[in-house]
């Protein structure tokens, strides 16, 4: 719904405003409270985050007391020390995004083209899991994927996985959890872009080529690319910053992601500058990746 519409709220569609209103104060008055809220509680915090990231411990050596400085070396220290968690975050998020795309694409395709009257119902069902608490669902997966549980023992009995394999507290469990939790973010934009494809194009395609796979490769898939881009970003961004899956399904420090480090630096170790520089680097890295990805994928329809 909203997530899907993120994908296709076009680039600032020119509003059909009557010319007389164009110079009025009304739009500014309408914008003021909302934009002020975002400025004070989103833009300003990003600035204080940056400020905090350059702080140094106070002279007295007391824990949790820092003074403002401009120590850019904080960034070097933080990134060098937590390079493993950074790369792990991006690798886990990347694998989970690819898996979600592989699972979500056929699902979105099925809903868009084969569901008939059930379309709306199925769409509701895709988002429905969100209503049962995110944390509870993750805990449920921990129990379902437990080594002594039904799923893992069946897979071992069928020799799909080796007898010695452990899933509990492994990277596999973390990636599985991330994939599951963000799958609807992938499926909805995919559906939104597939649903808009004119079926006559597909018919024309099959009239010209005949082969179903060629039609898919040359017509359907290219037309669904905006959905692929939007879905990939909507999955990858929250996945890279997530720490709940790594905390509940993985083991520390073996599967710790960057979010886990930020969390523990803030609350357990009380090292605000490191936590702030790590957050800032994460944000910058994601923005750069998003920018490159959008340029490469060539879709302008995102913002």
């Amino acid at each position: 719904m909203a997530i899907a519409s993120v994908a296709h709220t076009g680039p600032a569609a020119p509003p059909p405003a009557p010319a007389g209103r164009s110079r009025s104060l009304t739009p500014y008055l309408l914008l003021l409270p909302g934009i002020a809220w975002l400025t004070i509680f989103f833009v300003v915090p990003i600035v204080t985050l940056f400020g905090t990231s350059l702080q140094v411990p106070a002279e007295g050596g007391e824990t949790g007391v820092f003074v403002q400085a401009f120590r850019f070396a904080n960034y070097v220290d933080a990134v060098t020390e937590y390079w493993a968690q950074f790369s792990r975050s991006f690798v886990y998020a990347g694998i989970a995004t690819v898996l979600a795309l592989a699972i979500g694409y056929p699902l979105a395709y099925m809903i868009a083209f084969k569901a008939g009257k059930l379309r709306n119902l199925l769409l509701v069902l895709v988002v429905a899991p969100f209503f049962a608490s995110f944390i509870l669902r993750t805990i449920a997966w921990r129990q379902i994927l437990a080594d002594e549980g039904f799923v893992v023992s069946s897979l071992k009995w069928l020799h799909v996985i080796p007898q010695t394999a452990t899933v509990t507290a492994s990277a596999v469990a973390v990636v599985a959890g991330i994939t599951y939790n963000f799958l609807p973010f992938m499926t909805l934009p995919l559906y939104a872009s597939l649903e808009r494809i004119d079926p006559r194009l597909l018919e024309a395609g099959s009239d010209l080529y005949g082969n179903g796979f060629t039609v898919f490769r040359k017509v359907t898939f290219p037309l669904s690319l905006p959905g692929v881009v939007a879905g990939t970003l909507l999955t990858f961004i929250p996945a890279a910053g997530d720490y709940v899956n790594a905390a509940l399904l993985g083991r520390q420090p073996g599967t710790a992601m960057i979010g886990n480090v930020v969390e523990s630096r803030f609350f357990r170790i009380v090292d605000y500058p490191t936590a702030a520089s790590l957050s800032f680097v994460l944000m910058a890295a994601i923005l750069v990746l998003v920018f490159l990805y959008i340029r490469k994928a060539g879709t302008e329809e995102l913002v």
Binding site: V6, L38, F41, F42, V44, P45, I46, T48, L49, G51, T52, L233, I237, P238, A240, G241, D242, Y243, I258, G259, V262, E263, F266, Y272, A275, A276, S279, F280, L282, M283, I286, L287, V290
Partner: peptide, 19 residues
């Protein structure tokens, strides 16, 4: 805000509230 990971929003708000 929609394109920023939650943990970054969380950390930045916390630094504001701490200050």
């Amino acid at each position: 805000p929609m394109a920023t990971p939650e943990v970054v929003l969380a950390a930045s708000l916390l630094t504001l509230f701490l200050q």
